[in-house]
Design a protein around this nucleic acid. Structure first.
Length: 237
DNA sequence: CCAGACGTTGTT
DNA sequence: GTCTGG
DNA sequence: CCAGACGTTGTT
DNA sequence: GTCTGG
């Protein structure tokens, strides 16, 4: 779940929305993206617990050295929020390396028979955040890497219909709880209470064009244009 | 201890 | 009721 | 998470 | 490299 998302917000709009600054270098390197694919490890904006006054670029990629060397086998693009406190890879980070991951939408596929239909999902805020955790580690060359992973949870009813094979969804932090998520030294139960499926009535989804999203360069505004499939009409009621 | 795991839900 | 192995 | 376990070293 | 299940 959640290997493709959108953050097409301009840096100035993110700065206003989150009341935070960006380092000049990050602002220059930042590009709005209509479809970021986790498997190509893009640099994307995040807000970390350790430097909450900044919007910084982190890599959606291997979470540590071991994951980097075993990428085919170990995928750390998402982490199961229900198990985050028990997993060796994440348990130390969930306490004080949480982050917000700004987004304007994400993509998921509905499976119907042998066909797959892509959907764009957003919420009732134009810019929102996934809940994530991050890690700083050194690669073989001794270069510091800054990685993040998106936390997932059970699907809400709309997402159960769309992501009907796995019934999972990314944890979307309600706007009023964003600052809570970044608070230092939260108790485990307080952290768990923030890791919930997003409110169904505030989840907005529609199908998009198969051809565009499967094309060589899906990073175009057309990728999130609504396209209805008559054969899905009954399923979407 | 110590061998074996370490990750999630795609294949566009 | 609470812990933990799967 | 959540179904299933939850105990230690006698013999009376 | 580090954690943990058996």
């Amino acid at each position: 779940m959640c290997y493709n998302y959108k953050n097409d917000a301009a840096s100035k709009d993110m700065k206003v929305r989150f009341k935070r600054k960006m380092k000049e270098e990050d602002e220059q390197n930042y590009k709005p993206v209509f479809k970021a694919n986790g498997f190509s490890h893009p640099l994307m904006p995040v807000i970390t617990q350790e430097e909450p006054e900044l919007i910084q670029l982190y890599q959606w990629g291997p979470f540590n050295a071991f994951a980097a060397e075993n990428e085919r086998k170990y995928n750390t693009l998402n982490a199961i929020s229900e198990e985050i406190f028990e997993k060796a890879t994440y348990k130390k980070n969930i306490q004080n390396k949480r982050c917000l991951i700004p987004a304007t939408g994400f993509y998921e596929w509905m499976h119907v028979g042998k066909e797959k239909y892509p959907f764009h999902i957003a919420i009732d805020e134009p810019i929102f955040c996934f809940a994530g955790i991050y890690n700083h580690w050194k690669d073989k060359e001794g270069i510091e890497r800054k990685a993040y992973t998106i936390l997932t949870t059970a699907a809400n009813p709309i997402m159960e219909k769309i992501h009907n094979t796995k019934k999972r969804m990314p944890v979307i932090m309600p706007m009023v709880l964003e600052d809570n998520w970044l608070k230092q030294d939260l108790a485990i139960e307080e952290i768990k209470s923030l890791l919930l499926p997003y409110e169904n009535e505030r989840t907005l989804a529609f199908s998009v064009d198969k051809k565009v999203i499967f094309s060589e360069d899906a990073n175009t505004p057309k990728v999130f244009e609504r396209v209805d499939y008559p054969e899905l009409a009954l399923l979407m009621n």
